[in-house]
Design a binder for these strands. Sequence first.
DNA 1: TAGCTTTCTAAACATTTGTTATCGTTTTCA
DNA 2: TGAAAACGATAACAAATGTTTAGAAAGCTA
Lengths: 188, 188
Amino acid sequence: MEFFRFIVAQIINCSPEEWEGFAKQIRVQEFKKNVFLAEANRVPDEVFFIEKGLIRVLINDSKGTEQTFHFATEGQFIADYASYLRMQPAHYSLQALEDTRVVVIPRAAIDWGYAHMKQGEKLGRLVAEQYFSYHDDRIKQTFSLTPKERYHKIEEVFPGILNRIPQHMIASYLGISSVHLSRIKNQK
Amino acid sequence: MEFFRFIVAQIINCSPEEWEGFAKQIRVQEFKKNVFLAEANRVPDEVFFIEKGLIRVLINDSKGTEQTFHFATEGQFIADYASYLRMQPAHYSLQALEDTRVVVIPRAAIDWGYAHMKQGEKLGRLVAEQYFSYHDDRIKQTFSLTPKERYHKIEEVFPGILNRIPQHMIASYLGISSVHLSRIKNQK
DNA sequence: TAGCTTTCTAAACATTTGTTATCGTTTTCA
DNA sequence: TGAAAACGATAACAAATGTTTAGAAAGCTA
């Protein structure tokens, strides 16, 4: 939990009393490799903070194929946040790709933070802004770069990812087939 | 300005005194059709709220071609928000596609709101969350739908848009060529 | 109104990307 | 440890999408 405390302290001022009240409502949980932290079609009621490990966010397309939507690693928050906000059934599932330790932050804790922590709203704002900016970059890249160019930039966004996960997940993250990714890699 | 006041009041509680202090720092501005409200490569220092009209957000890809990234209409906030947040040169330009009236909200006003309005941070959070959710839907659709399916859903996101703007802008918003969009339309 | 520009469609052809199948290698796990 | 599964590369072919060009209709402007 110290890592999480450290990150929060980097974003906002949070008194020991505030932290104590908040920390009572959250918990640490471990997930083995390949286990799902959250599944599509359920209303998400918590946000995760990754202390260790690697999570992928996946969605089933209209043909029923699993598409990798996103990766998240140490120090990041992760959830089907849009569905969380709207209190609607999730479209995404979250899966641990390695043994992973997360802080589980239930909705009640988040709402408590907004109501009782001086900079709670600010924390929420900054996290949303950061997450938004990531998404914005993502869309921007799909507009302005070819799959090949995107592949060569992926390490900038997720350092070390190429050695941590299988290629077909990279391919679907890039929006292409794994065969095509294989081709791209061998084009020099 | 009343429309803007009305929308803000729908999102947060804002006392007359707070509004007065805030309103002093913002202004209304009109832009003729085809005029640019903001240009790429400049650090954005304001956010716009659209009271009337239609704005497109565009980006130049690596070949120098204009790509339509986004549309925004009455009642929405618009900016190259990621660049605004990072105080970095914008990647997007904003262009009025019709005669448009906006409320110009400078960075100073926004920061003033965070510092002096009780629910200022909350407003910022909710706007960021909303904008994030829109982006999330957008990426989700590009993953799970074909261009044809996306075309048929565009009116859900931007009601009436198909009759307001030329087809090549729709095409680049969908990520396809205008010729291909023409094909799709005539497939029944 | 006349002329110029933009817009949309269409056809032909080129390029990109997907699909399927195969094969050798690596990883997993019972 | 050994069998099964997953993985990555490759080839052949198919489908989707882009590019170029042309022409007719619509819109804009002097």
